[in-house]
Design a protein around this nucleic acid. Structure first.
Length: 474
RNA sequence: GCGCCCAUCGUCUAGCGGUCCAGGACGUCGCCCUUUCACGGCGAAAACACGGGUUCGAUUCCCGUUGGGCGCGCCA
């Protein structure tokens, strides 16, 4: 246990925690938990314009909901600006960085010219070796890294393998802005180093940055952490997951009725695999995870598969747990608050009793809540279109004819009502379905529900009889 | 434009030179179960992007083409 792994998740608080970030966080979390290391959280808020406290809250909330707990307090990058400047002073002193007085207009021209000549738009190093005495008066300089111009920089990546970048393509990027604020490129390196990060797992949009950051590590004489760049997640159409393609924050997945355990499992299998295995409980995925199992090609997000997986987790839960999970989620679900306001002890009990029949018909908590709707409905019930058709198409007559027999029942249970209904069907020369469907329509207002005799039992004698009577005479 | 990454069924993927006329999962379709809808069971259709090599032998290795993606800011 001499070399403990330290991983981190480092989002910038400029928006919600999106699905790609959630997966990155999951991978880092899994590795730390598997190896008995630490999983740290760093908020990269050096962009003062775009960072917001709301976004910070959304990210923390999202991670908590997903069950990804971080070790220690979250670190805010902006608060470490003094330390970042200190490191730059050190680089300046060692000649590994220099002041650049080029104006914004100058840089624009430089890039435009490079493009026109078919060269990559890079800083040309015009202040790299210039005398400080040449500095124009009144211009605050930026500080740039004195990067190697020849040779190559190699990134040993846990996912991508050995990736080699010609140094001529990597320019002298900015470390400190003219107002003295550190840039992301600098801050990441300093913070990862100071936090003792040993393994970086992040999106492969950072792969090129890895080479640039390697230059900083080398300039400082610091060891480069192990890196793993994970291919990005794309939308269902193959294009980048963006707002317009329905990129959602994890809070949206909660509102859609997904279970954190199911989302974790889905996210794990999106880009990571271990043979044919699909299902991993949380302890199992901690046990099984490894960087070497991460795939190299980008993947597309597939709601259908997530939904299927969520259904598996839903059905696999114990009834009481699922009932409690549903109740706890109600505030976040579309019509949840309304149901919550009607939830009393009696309904809590009924919800539990109904769970076996409900859960195998639902893939999400939203569907589960919807299925449970008949337990909360008040008379007279709202009747859906399909249920109405059943009632209009001869259903009401059956209800009226069944009523006396049901009323005369001694005991009221699934078994006793089933016997009565079957007896009636036989007498009427009807198939069970022909009488069960009108009952379902009257009792639930829908054309689909759990087994009808269970519904009768759940609702109880008085409520059942009243609902049937409502529709028999309507 | 330059650099880098990627390329197996519609989707997620297994495959790490012969075991592959390519396996699993989701989705789709059919059948069974059945009071509805589901669940469950059974079955079907469905892929190695293309072209060159290397090799006795390529889905697996190399090169190119094509197609995607990412990066190239005093953003992160």
């Amino acid at each position: 246990m001499s070399s403990t792994v330290v991983t981190r998740f480092a989002p910038s608080p400029t928006g919600f925690l999106h699905i790609g970030g959630a997966r990155t966080a999951l991978f880092n979390w899994l590795l730390a938990r598997k190896l008995g290391g630490r999983f740290l959280l760093r908020i990269e808020d050096t962009d003062r314009e775009r960072s917001t406290p709301e976004a910070v809250a959304a990210i923390l909330d999202g991670l908590e909901w997903l069950g990804l707990d971080w070790d220690g307090d979250a670190l805010f990058q902006f608060a470490r600006a003094d330390r970042h400047r200190e490191v730059v002073e050190e680089m300046l002193a060692k000649g590994r960085a220099y002041r650049c007085y080029a104006s914004a207009a100058e840089l624009d021209d430089m890039r435009a010219l490079a493009r026109a000549e078919g060269r990559p738009p890079r800083y040309d190093g015009r202040w790299r070796d210039r005398d400080a005495a040449d500095a124009p008066a009144g211009v605050k300089p930026v500080i740039r890294l004195r990067a190697p111009t020849d040779g190559v920089t190699t990134v040993e990546d846990g996912v991508q393998g050995r990736v080699v970048f010609p140094n001529k393509d990597l320019d002298d990027f900015v470390l400190l802005r003219s107002d003295g604020a550190p840039t992301y490129m600098l801050a990441v390196v300093v913070d990862d180093h100071d936090m003792g990060v040993t393994q970086i797992i992040r999106g492969d949009d950072h792969l090129t940055n890895a080479a640039r950051q390697t230059h900083i590590y080398e300039a400082l004489g610091w060891p480069v952490p192990a890196m793993a760049h994970v291919p990005l997640i794309h939308g269902q159409d193959g294009a980048k997951l963006s707002k317009r393609h329905g990129a959602l924050g994890v809070d949206a997945y909660r509102a859609l009725g997904y279970l954190p355990a199911a989302l974790r499992n889905y996210l794990l299998r999106l880009g990571w695999s271990q043979g044919d295995r699909e299902f991993f409980s949380t302890p199992d995925m901690i046990e099984a995870f490894s960087v070497s199992g991460i795939g190299r090609s980008p993947s597309r997000f597939d709601f259908a598969k997530l939904e299927n997986m969520n259904g598996h987790y839903l059905r696999g839960m114990a009834d009481a747990d699922l009932r409690d999970t549903l109740v706890a989620a109600l505030p976040h679900l579309p019509d949840g608050p309304a149901l919550l306001s009607k939830l009393d002890d009696s309904r809590r009990a009924k919800l539990l009793a109904a769970m076996p029949g409900l859960k195998e018909r639902a893939k999400t908590l939203v569907e589960l809540a919807d299925g449970a709707g008949f337990l909360f409905a008040a008379r007279p019930l709202a009747i859906e279109a399909k249920a109405k058709e059943i009632l209009e198409g001869g259903g009401r007559a059956h209800l009226a004819a069944m009523l006396p027999g049901l009323r005369a029942l001694e005991g009221w249970s699934a078994a006793s009502t089933e016997a009565a209904v079957r007896a009636y069907a036989e007498r009427a020369g009807a198939k069970l379905g022909q009488v069960a469907q009108p009952l379902r329509a009257a009792l639930t207002g829908k054309a689909a529900s759990p087994g009808i005799f269970d519904v009768l039992d759940l609702l109880g004698r008085d409520e059942s009889l009243a609902r049937i009577a409502d529709q028999a005479t309507a």
